[in-house]
Design a binder for these strands. Structure first.
Lengths: 215, 215
DNA sequence: GCACAGTTACTGACAGGTAAGTAAGTAGCG
DNA sequence: CGCTACTTACTTACCTGTCAGTAACTGTGC
C-alpha cells in the first residue's frame, strides 16, 4: 500500500500522456459526441486540468484529429502486419469485425456518434469520415469485382460501387440500431445476412428479374 | 410593396407561431444538431428572441420533442389519408421515399443528424428514435412475410426481422454517405438495389448456399 | 554526487464567448 | 380592461483558449 492510487510516483513520459489523453478523448467524444464532450471531461479522466490537455494538443479540433489518426493507427495494428484482405476474405473480415464489435460497444458508439455528427455543417471530422468512406468503397468494390472474376464473370464499376456503398451503409445503419436497442437486432448475424444478400445480388448481375417490379 | 418583408401587420396566432418555430427548429437542429443548435439560432429565423421561443415551448428539450412529433404528423399527412402500404407496396414506397429524399437534402440531414446524435448518453431524442426503429422494423418484417406468403412460402419471424433491420440500416447508412459525398453514391439507385438484394435473400430462405462460405 | 541551467508538464486564474432559463415589464388585440 | 405574446435584462453555468508561474525531470560540467 505504499502508493496505491496515489497521484503517481513519476511523471509519465510525453508519449504515455498523449496516449492516455487520446484514450480518454475517445471515450468522451464517443459517449457524448465531439461538441458536447468538453476538454474538462477529458482532462478529468486523466487526472489533470483542461489546460494540461491543451498543452499537449493545442486545441480541441487538433485533439479530435489526433483521436481519429490514433484510431486509424490502432485499427491497422489490430491486423498485425497482415495486409487488408481482398476478394472473399474481405467480406469474411467484415463479418468478423461485426462479431468482434458486438463485444466493444464503446468503440462502436464512438464511431457511430462521430460519423453521425460529421454531417452537421462545418464539422471538423467531416473530411476524415468522407475520406474513410471513399477508401472503404474503393476497397470493397475491388473485392466484389475480384469475387466476380473468380466466378468467371465480369462486373462493371457502377455495379461494384453500388454494392460497396450498400455494404458500408448496412453495417453503419445496423450499428446505430444495435446501440439503441441491442436486444432488437443481432449485430453479427444481421450484418452477415445483409452482406451475403448484397454480394449475391451484385454477382447475379443487373439482368436478374426484380423482386419488386415497377408498377 | 405595402408591407413586403416588413415585420408583420398583425401578430400571428399562437398556432401559426408554433408552426413557424417548429419549422425553424427543424432547420437548425437538422443543420447543426440538437446540442450545437441554439435557441437563439431558432429565434432569429422567426424574428423573435430566444426567450420568445421559450415562452411557447418551455425548454429546449420540449422544443425538440415537439419537432419530432411535428415530423411524425407531417410525414403522415404526406401520405394523404392513405394507410401505410403493406407487402410489395411498402418496398415500392421505401424506394420512392429514397428518390424523393434525394431532392430534400435538409430533411435527410435533419434525420441523419438526430439519429446519429441520439446514440450519445442520455440524449433527449433517444427514446423517440428507438421507438421509431421498433415500429419500422415491425412494419417491414410484416411486409416481408406478406410477400413471402404471396409467393407461396412461409417466412419465420427471425428471418423477417433480420431483413427488416437490414433494410432500415442500409437506408440510413446510405443517407449518411450521400450527405457527405453526394457524387459518390446514388441515393435512389443504391437504396433500390440494396432493398431488392435483401428482399431477394430473405425470400430465398436460409437454406440457400452461402456466397461467403465459412473457412 | 552534486550544483546549476534548461526543458517539459503542468496548474490556477482569468478573459471572452455563448448557452439555457427566469422574471418583470410592455405592447397589441379582443 | 385583461389576456397573451413577447422583449429586455439578468443569472447561472459552461466552454475554449491564453498566460504567467511553478514544480519536476534531464542533461552538463566538475
Amino acid at each position: 500500500m505504499a502508493d496505491g492510487s496515489a497521484p503517481r510516483r513519476t511523471r509519465p513520459s510525453k508519449a504515455e500522456r498523449r496516449e492516455e489523453i487520446l484514450a480518454a478523448a475517445t471515450r468522451v467524444f464517443g459517449s457524448k459526441g465531439y461538441h458536447a464532450g468538453s476538454l474538462v471531461d477529458v482532462a478529468e479522466q486523466v487526472g489533470i486540468t483542461h489546460a494540461g490537455v491543451l498543452h499537449h494538443f493545442g486545441s480541441k479540433d487538433k485533439l479530435l484529429w489526433a483521436v481519429l489518426e490514433y484510431r486509424d493507427r490502432v485499427d491497422v495494428e489490430h491486423l498485425e502486419g497482415q495486409h487488408i484482405p481482398g476478394g472473399l476474405d474481405l467480406f469474411r473480415h467484415l463479418m468478423t469485425t461485426a462479431r468482434i464489435n458486438a463485444e466493444r460497444r464503446g468503440i462502436v458508439q464512438a464511431y457511430a456518434v462521430l460519423t453521425g455528427e460529421s454531417v452537421t455543417d462545418g464539422h471538423p471530422a467531416a473530411a476524415w469520415v468522407t475520406e474513410r468512406f471513399t477508401v472503404l468503397r474503393g476497397e470493397i468494390a475491388a473485392a466484389v469485382q475480384q469475387v466476380a472474376r473468380e466466378r468467371g464473370t465480369e462486373l462493371g464499376d457502377p455495379q461494384a460501387r453500388r454494392a460497396a456503398s450498400a455494404v458500408i451503409g448496412v453495417m453503419d445503419g445496423l450499428q446505430v440500431q444495435w446501440l439503441l436497442d441491442p436486444d432488437a437486432v443481432g449485430l453479427a448475424e444481421d450484418t452477415a445476412f445483409a452482406i451475403e444478400a448484397i454480394l449475391a445480388a451484385a454477382l447475379a448481375g443487373p439482368e436478374t428479374p426484380r423482386v419488386v417490379p415497377a408498377r
